[in-house]
């Protein structure tokens, strides 16, 4: 087991390096740089910028350096000093900008994963054990609806319901009075009051998918010879179900940790716009549009790193659960 973890950690180093290269390459992809964006913004507001000024800006932000040097400055500051650079647009350190938003993104992500598990697990189990029952058909129908409805539509619908039925203010993650307040129990309660809509919106598709996966996996396992053999040894039905086939069928649940994070970042942007959530998605969108490269790069890098860490966690859990993974048997 230790060898397995060490091997997976070792493999993370080249992966992370590749990710940093790709993140940097992505933010360099659009033509022009922050200076050109700034110039066009200034020109829009009627000002003119001369070439010397432009060069001065480039020099100040290090944009005149060769790409390799820019990359090195960027990544070495991150690794050595935890300094993600300065956001051109906000005129703040990137680290400060993210420190308020990243934790909320992680909270939202984890809540969504938990929601997905808590809902999908019993329903999937029921659907498989009582295959072709009424409950199974209902779960299947609801599941397909969940998969088919676009998230932003669901968000709008839920907001409407929340507003008209519960008379709740549903935008954002906090009510106005707690927006800038320090953490307290009341603020936490306020967060919970707001969190449920994005969690449902973001979790529905994943839940529906997991129900289907658990049902299919469990149905495959339920009639395997080892289940019949366990029954022939006089174990109770509940014990058989929970000890043998279920243990094999839950592997996809563990894998969700790995893939739910990138899904939230990509799928969440639209939802976050609709629900005006203070998460990293909208921030990334704005940073990319204004070519605020240090901010955009930092977000892409951090989210990718979190994804890699999530994958590592799910792999370790999977290896703990399944001896075939741990012992490297194909």
């Amino acid at each position: 087991m230790l060898g397995f973890v060490a091997r997976r950690l070792g493999l993370m180093v080249p992966t992370l390096f590749a990710i940093s290269l790709v993140s940097f390459a992505i933010i360099q992809l659009p033509p022009g740089d922050y200076a050109t964006t700034l110039v066009s913004q200034l020109e829009d507001s009627g000002q003119t910028v001369d070439t010397a000024q432009l060069e001065a800006i480039r020099e100040r932000y290090g944009l005149d350096q060769p790409i390799v040097v820019q990359y090195w400055t960027w990544i070495s500051n991150i690794v050595l000093h935890g300094d993600f650079g300065q956001s051109f647009q906000w005129n703040q350190p990137v680290a400060d900008l993210l420190s308020s938003r990243l934790p909320l993104t992680i909270v939202l992500t984890l809540s969504t994963v938990l929601f997905t598990w808590i809902v999908a697990f019993p329903i999937g189990l029921y659907s498989a054990v009582r295959q072709y029952s009424w409950g199974d058909y209902v779960a299947t129908t609801v599941g397909f609806l969940g998969l088919a409805i676009p998230n932003f539509l669901l968000a709008l619908g839920l907001m409407y319901i929340a507003l008209t039925v519960f008379d709740a203010d549903v935008g954002g993650l906090f009510s106005a009075e707690y927006e800038e307040a320090p953490w307290s129990l009341a603020r936490f309660a306020d967060l919970l009051g707001h969190l449920w809509i994005p969690v449902i919106v973001l979790g529905t598709a994943g839940t529906a998918g997991l129900i289907r996966i658990l049902r299919a996996n469990l149905l495959d396992e339920l009639h395997k010879p080892y289940v019949v053999a366990a029954r022939s040894r006089g174990l109770s039905e509940t014990r058989i179900l929970f000890k043998y086939p279920l243990r094999v069928a839950v592997s996809p649940f563990l894998s969700t940790i790995g893939w739910v994070l990138p899904l939230l970042v990509s799928g969440e942007i639209v939802v976050s716009q609709v629900l005006s959530l203070p998460t990293t998605g909208p921030l990334l969108l704005r940073a990319l549009r204004s070519q605020d490269m240090y901010l955009a790069g930092a977000i892409i890098l951090l989210v990718s790193v979190l994804t890699v860490v999530g994958t590592l966690l799910s792999d370790i859990l999977l290896a703990r659960m399944d001896p075939r993974v741990r012992l490297g048997i194909r």
Binding site: K224, A229, R231, R233, G234, L235, Y244, D322, P323
Partner: peptide, 20 residues
Amino acid sequence: IRGQQISMIFQEPLAALSPM
């Protein structure tokens, strides 16, 4: 009765044991 009074062995021994 199962396992105590009457017990059974199967054709595919590998498949009749859980790999977990």
